[in-house]
């Protein structure tokens, strides 16, 4: 009995130590002070007003959302296509390609960032939406391929065979059978790619320019020098959007489980 209580105490303490540092910035966003201090002693919404009044902060949020949406779309289109292609390959080739797709996950972000920066500079893509989207697509696509590949592997191959036997061509099989059944996997991949891009900072630091920069890059520039609680507002927006994404992903996962049951 004492052991069970001890265990629960440990669990509660551990959960607090893990979660509290993640959400510690949120109260600072509602501070009335002119500097960021934790915990605030007076409360206000002045820093939220400041965030939305400053065109550079708001523009960064918009750039982040644009890059994340475009990267997520690119990831699921390319990822679905790649997963379908891998499904047709013999196991050896499939394994080899899985290794190739692991590359962006394993390589140090700073190395990719510096390499991409050098390339983007020579073709004038530094500080462009396109450069950021390409980089984030590369970074998140492997997860999309994996996610969608798992959905495809769970598919009963007899369904496609039955449809083919009934005279359906490949496109029609894909549209009416494969796609609807792997849709939860694709949606999960999209959510994941969106959050990966929205959270990413290292590649974005090197690929952003004075005009086009993402929200994390704006935060990074601010906290390297002196910062006000407006940074906490930006951080709070990032937390809320990321957690919403996670919840959405879980919801889609549940739909998938129910669809299977």
């Amino acid at each position: 009995m004492a052991r069970a209580i001890g265990l629960k105490l440990f669990a509660a303490l551990a959960a607090a130590i893990i979660v509290l540092p993640v959400i510690a910035v949120i109260p600072v966003a509602f501070s009335a002070h002119s500097y960021a201090r934790l915990p605030p002693e007076a409360w206000s919404l002045r820093w939220w007003a400041a965030f939305f009044a400053d065109p550079t902060w708001f523009a960064a949020l918009i750039v982040s959302l644009e890059v994340a949406v475009l990267s997520a779309v690119a990831c699921i289109v390319l990822g679905t296509s790649a997963a379908l292609g891998m499904n047709r390959l013999p196991p050896v080739a499939r394994k080899l390609l899985a290794g190739v797709f692991l590359g962006p996950i394993i390589a140090p972000a700073i190395v990719l960032a510096v390499g991409l920066y050098s390339l983007a500079r020579s073709v004038g893509l530094v500080g462009s939406l396109l450069g950021l989207v390409i980089a984030h697509t590369m970074l998140a696509m492997p997860y999309a391929v994996l996610n969608i590949g798992v959905s495809l592997a769970a598919l009963d191959p007899r369904l496609a065979l039955a449809a083919a036997g009934l005279g359906a061509d490949r496109w029609r099989i894909f549209r009416t059978i494969t796609l609807p059944l792997i849709l939860p996997g694709i949606a999960g991949g999209a959510v994941f790619a969106f959050v990966t891009s929205f959270d990413e900072v290292v590649l974005a630091i090197f690929l952003s320019g004075p005009q086009v920069k993402t929200l994390p890059v704006r935060i990074w520039e601010e906290i390297r020098v002196e910062y006000t609680p407006v940074v906490a507002v930006a951080a709070t927006i990032m937390i809320v959007l990321a957690i919403t994404g996670a919840a959405l992903g879980r919801l889609l996962g549940r739909v998938r489980q129910e669809a299977r049951a």
């Binding site: 893990i18 979660v19 540092p21 993640v22 959400i23 510690a24 910035v25 600072v28 960021a36 201090r37 934790l38 959050v195 929205f198 959270d199 990413e200 900072v201 994390p216 935060i219 990074w220 906290i223 940074v231 906490a232 951080a235 990032m238 937390i239 990321a242 957690i243 994404g245 996670a246």
Partner: peptide, 16 residues
Amino acid sequence: LPLWVSVLVRTFSWML
């Protein structure tokens, strides 16, 4: 849960 939140945001939290 923390895996979904940007490393930058988590690091900023620790700064505070």
